[in-house]
């Protein structure tokens, strides 16, 4: 008990809990972290390919063109959006794994940044799932709905998923901030990954321009606001998953040494 880190009671109960073996303490962490790439692959398949969102239907399409799209592809869209709503929820366990690692970056500091990450990441599920409902609604009765209504539903889905970006920016910046304060000789999240996470989150600010354009780079199908921003987000998921996975065995080793010393 000579370790000064043990004097913080919150850290004591959260981290040093001799009732739990290391195996029990870290159980499910890797499974949760692995949900990030699973989410990504499934979301690309369901939301992107089956749902015809990669690339998005251009914002300058007429209502009749949009209606023809829904009336032709309604079954793929139903399946795709059903899958998107299912797998979109995997963003939650992935966020939880990052939260658990972030709590142990600096054990004696308060956990407000990691909690912020948890809430922001968990709430990211909301735009993912809710926007899928709008597209699913369009595909549910495409023959009975007016073309303008179908157009509105498709627009609303994209406006929600794009314009609710800041709820995803919050956890991205939080991860970067927490990682940069890591006092280890070799930080759990390398500084480049932290800065990438912060930059990627802030780069979503270009989405502010999305509602003002139906064509060009800032439109929902534009090369900047779709291709660049979504690739940046997908890359962020892979980068953070990789370093979360790498952090877990290091934390296991640190905790085992701590238990041995105590």
């Amino acid at each position: 008990m000579n370790d000064p880190r043990m004097f913080n009671t919150e850290a004591y109960f959260r981290y040093y809990n001799p009732v739990l073996t290391n195996e029990a303490y870290f159980r499910y962490w890797r499974a949760c972290a692995a949900m990030g790439p699973v989410f990504l692959a499934a979301f690309l398949l369901c939301w992107g390919m089956l749902g015809y969102n990669i690339p998005p239907i251009p914002a300058d399409w007429t209502a009749d063109q949009m209606a023809a799209h829904f009336r032709t592809h309604y079954n793929e869209i139903r399946a795709g959006m059903g899958g998107a709503m299912l797998f979109g929820c995997l963003y939650l366990p992935w966020t939880l794994a990052i939260y658990k690692v972030m709590q142990l970056i600096n054990r004696n500091e308060n956990d407000i940044v990691s909690t912020l990450q948890m809430w922001g990441g968990a709430l990211t599920v909301v735009p993912l799932v809710t926007s899928s409902v709008f597209w699913l609604t369009g595909a549910y009765r495409p023959e009975e709905l007016e073309p303008k209504t179908l157009q509105m539903l498709y627009d609303q889905g994209w406006l929600l998923i794009d314009m609710f970006y800041f709820i995803t920016t919050i956890p991205m910046v939080a991860i970067g901030m927490a990682g940069l304060t890591d006092k280890r000789e070799k930080p759990l999240f390398p500084r480049w990954a932290c800065w990438y996470s912060i930059w990627a989150g802030l780069s979503f600010l270009f989405e502010l321009l999305m509602p003002f354009f139906k064509t060009g780079l800032f439109a929902r199908q534009g090369w900047l606001n779709f291709w660049v921003e979504f690739v940046v987000w997908f890359a962020y998921i892979l980068v953070i998953t990789y370093f979360t996975m790498k952090a877990i065995p290091r934390l296991e080793k640190e905790r085992a040494e701590l238990l041995d010393r105590a």
Binding site: R191, W192, A193, W195, Y196, W199, A200, S203
Partner: peptide
Amino acid sequence: VSGILTFIIAD
């Protein structure tokens, strides 16, 4: 290529 340089290069 670490630290703030990552932010700058990406930008």
